[in-house]
Every structure is written in C-alpha cells, then in structure tokens.
Design a protein around this nucleic acid. Structure first.
Length: 486
DNA sequence: TTTTGAGTTGTTCGA
DNA sequence: GTCGAACAACTCAAA
C-alpha cells in the first residue's frame, strides 16, 4: 500500500458522475490530484477553436467548483501533456496517473507520449474507457472490418450495447497534503475580448455537468415524444441541444442512453407503446450517429483532412474567397442559409437541419471545398467535435462513408418553406426580413416590388440579392459530379 | 466465394 | 394539388 497521490488527468470528460478513471482513483484510497492540461501543442491544427474555448472556460469553472465542494482542488496547467503531467507527478510525489481515453488521431499520439514519458519515470498509467458507448476495437463486421454503413452499425450497437446504471459522483475528494502550483484559469484567455463576440452565448447555454443533466431531463420531459418529426424544425425548440455538453464530456453517452431508456420505460408502462414511443428510438439513433463518426475517425485518421472516397480529390472546387466570406457572415441572399450562419455566430450553435442546408449551399451551390466549411464550424461551434464535424461535412459533400448521393442538392428556398413554414426562424435571425409576408420570407427576390417596399426591404441594400441562381448552380454542381465519375 | 438486398436527412418532372 | 419515377451505379454487409 502506498498513499502517494494519483494524478487524475481531465480531458474532454469534464464531469464527476459516470467517470471510470475518477471512480478508480477514489477506490484506490489515495489522495487525488485532479488536473486539466491546456495542450494546444499536441492538438496542432485541431486545438479547440474560439467558441469551444469559451465553453471550455465556463465548463472548467463549473468542474473546479464541484471538485472544491468535495474537498479537492482542480489544478490548471498548460503545455505538452506528457511533460506537464510528468512534472506535476514529480511536484506532488504521485506514482500513478489515471485518465479517460480519447479517440482523435492527435489525442491517441498524445496518450502514447504521456504513457511513454510517465513509465520512464516509474509512474503507473491507467487508461479508462472514454466518451463512447463502446470501444471502437469491439465493434466490427463479421469480416472483422470497421462498419462503413450506418444502418448495420446501428443494428449492431442496438443489439450488443447493454445500458448500465451510470456511476455516481463521489461525495468527497481527498487532495494531497500540500497543494501543487496551478495557473489561474483567467490567465488562459479562453474568453474573447475586443470584440466580445460571445456576448450572447451565456443567454443560451449553461456549461457544466449540472447544466447538461438539466438539459437532458428537460428534453426527455418535454420534447422527446415528438422528436421524430419536430427535430427537423429549427423554429421549434425540439432538439436536445446536448451536443456541446457531450463534446466536453459533461455528460456521457452512457448516461444519456440510460436515462432515455428509463424515461421510455416509464412512459410506456401502463399503456401500450404509443406513437410517442418512436421519438426515443430516433433520439438514440442520433446518439449512435455520433458514435459512428467517432469510430470512423478512429479507423480512418485522415477523415478531417482528406476525402474518404479518394476520387473526390479530383473534384473541381472553386477558389471563391468572397463567396466564402459572404457565406460565413450570413449574406448569401438565401434567408434560411443566412439565418443559420447568423445563429451560429450569435450562439455558437446551429440547428442540425440548417447545418445540412448551409453545408449543401457552400459545397454544391458555391462549389467551395468542404474543408473550408469544416474549418469555419470548427472555430465557431461550441460543440465542435472532430469526428462529428468531419464526418458530417463529408457526408454532405458525398465524399464520406455512407454519404449523400451526388444528386441530393438541397434547394434552400424549398427547405426553408418546408421546415420553417411560418418563417419564425428566419425572422428571428434575419430581422431585416421580418416584415415580409410568410409567402415571401424564404424567397424575397420573388416578391413584387411594392411588397418589398412596404416591408422595408431593398434587395442589394437592406438585404443581399441571392448570390447565385440556385437553378443554375444546381446544374453546374451536377455537371461537376458527372465529370468526377470519368 | 458468390450472391443478394439494402443503403438518414432531396428535387424535379410529368402524368 | 398529388404522386411516383428518375436521378447511377456502386459498395457494403451478411447469408
């Protein structure tokens, strides 16, 4: 027996409940030194973007507070994880380091460096299952290959995965006798200043473990029943909005599965499974899409950078810098596209249906490479997740696994009319169109001049004229994809 | 090894 | 206004 401390390395698992590494550290009976390492070096180009850093700051504040309530203290240090952890272990005389696994290529390299360095110094390293339902090594086709099609992957997970009651957060955390040096979180400059573009974020989000659980409970109580249909409606608050909490590990997918299954059982007890029952399964399927993306990235580490289908490297992309900027700012002249990109800028998040619409527009209407959209989302999304982001962009581009067929080109006007039928979403984020009648709110350029005038809209002045003719752009995209086949 | 059935999210056109 | 077919062929997963 020893009472040398255990270093508990927090990564994208910023919670105390359902945390295996933490549970093992507590069970060891030794003092615990919890630490978060800001390691932009190991992450390289995929270091957290601006919006995710805002979230990270607040999530770390919340985590530090709940550790403190339990008698511990979260240490903040900055630098290359292998080096930082070794030096922290030395400072406190720790002989072990526990952490949750991550699955991104850079994080796998980072873990290996941590392990090599620690073991050289005689530190025991224990790695625990991380942010997935199942370890990627354990999910394979009968031939032993990774799944490349979603539906069989889903069937496999649904039949093999056994939901387990999530681990409770420990009630006390014993620290070491003397506290190690720590940075001050405020000195990391994770929050934007001048300009403070995150001003509106706090109205919408509550980063931290408690906020995550509250969000899930609210969803299961109020929205899951109608989820199958309403999840496509950006004008309704019908999705879970758990993505940023999941991305930072404030809640685990296992917790989500367990609570969803429990809520489903409670809802159907005493009555036949009603039409509302479908919502639970649809929701779990979305959770498994996240899983699918993570497994794909694990098996195919170039996913964020290169098209999964190699022939797409020959695609005739356009170098349209001005077009990219118009898209980023939400000045395309297509209301639903602009609404989405402005929602993203204002809140760090965009409804998933709208993500598909804006992505299709960038790729297929403007012929701008999906990597440009991926990079913008990386910097602006509070839920930025390397696997989800790259898999989803490649899905829209048609270059991904199980991707959309090339002829699936979203019509931004039709999509707006279909999924934001009363224009509520557009009017919220594109207020200069608010006075237009429903009939034209998704298609201002079709409105008669007097309608525009009385709504105070002057195309090209108060709101941009459409930057492309969608009909023409569609044919151009189909043509480009046609050439790809040859 | 070969065969077979299936594959998130759409649009347009013509009957 | 509604509905079904066409838009391509290919790859994947499992029998």
């Amino acid at each position: 027996m020893t009472d040398a401390p255990v270093v508990l390395w927090f990564r994208n698992d910023l919670r105390l409940a359902d945390h295996r590494a933490l549970k093992a550290a507590v069970a060891s009976g030794r003092p615990i030194v919890p630490v978060f390492v800001l390691d932009d070096i190991s992450a390289g180009p995929w270091a957290a973007g601006g919006a995710a850093r805002w979230w990270l700051h607040h999530s770390l504040e919340a985590l530090a507070a709940s550790i403190e309530e339990r008698g511990g203290r979260l240490v903040f240090r900055r630098g290359e994880a292998a080096q930082v952890l070794a030096s922290l272990a030395e400072d406190v005389g720790a002989t072990a380091c526990y952490f949750s696994r991550r699955y991104e290529p850079w994080a796998i390299r980072q873990e290996k460096a941590v392990k090599d360095r620690a073991e050289k110094g005689g530190i025991e390293v224990r790695r625990f299952a991380g942010s997935l339902l199942m370890e990627p090594e354990r999910v394979a086709t009968q031939a032993g290959d990774p799944y490349k099609v979603y539906t069989p992957f889903w069937r496999q997970i649904a039949s093999v995965y056994k939901p387990e009651r999530p681990l409770k957060a420990p009630e006390t955390l014993n620290g070491p006798k003397s506290q190690p040096r720590s940075d001050r979180l405020e000195d990391w400059s994770l929050l934007p200043r001048r300009p403070d573009w995150a001003r509106g974020f706090a109205d919408v989000w509550t980063p931290g473990e408690a906020g995550a659980v509250e969000r899930l409970d609210d969803f299961l109580e109020n929205s899951v029943a109608g989820y199958t249909e309403e999840r496509n409606r950006p004008d309704l608050a019908s999705t879970s909005r758990l993505s940023p909490h999941l991305a930072h590990g404030e809640i685990s997918p296992g917790q989500i599965w367990w609570r969803t299954a429990s809520a489903r059982a409670a809802a159907s007890s005493g009555s036949m499974a009603g039409p509302g029952d479908k919502g639970y399964e649809t929701f779990l399927k979305e959770l498994v899409w996240r899983e699918f993306s993570a497994h794909l990235l694990f098996h195919f580490p170039t996913f964020p950078d290169e098209p999964f289908r190699a022939e797409f490297s020959r695609f005739p992309w356009s170098e349209d810098e001005a077009g990219l900027v118009a898209w980023q700012r939400g000045n395309t002249g297509f209301p639903i596209v602009d609404a989405g990109l402005r929602e993203l800028w204002a809140t760090g998040w965009m409804h998933n249906r709208v993500r598909m619409i804006v992505a299709s527009f960038l790729i297929k209407d403007l012929l701008i490479p999906w990597q440009s959209g991926e990079a913008w989302f990386w910097d602006t999304l509070v839920d930025a997740d390397l696997a989800n982001n790259s898999a989803s962009w490649q899905w829209v581009a048609g270059s991904g696994a199980d991707a959309a067929p090339y002829f699936r080109i979203f019509n931004p006007t039709t999509q707006g009319q279909k999924f934001d039928p009363d224009g509520v979403y557009v009017r919220q984020w594109v207020p200069e169109l608010a006075q237009l009648p429903d009939k034209f709110v998704h298609d201002p350029s079709a409105a008669p001049p007097e309608t525009l005038a009385s709504a105070g809209v002057e195309l090209g002045a108060t709101y941009p004229a459409p930057m492309v003719d969608h009909k023409v752009a569609r044919v151009r995209a189909l043509d480009a994809f046609e050439r790809l086949k040859k």
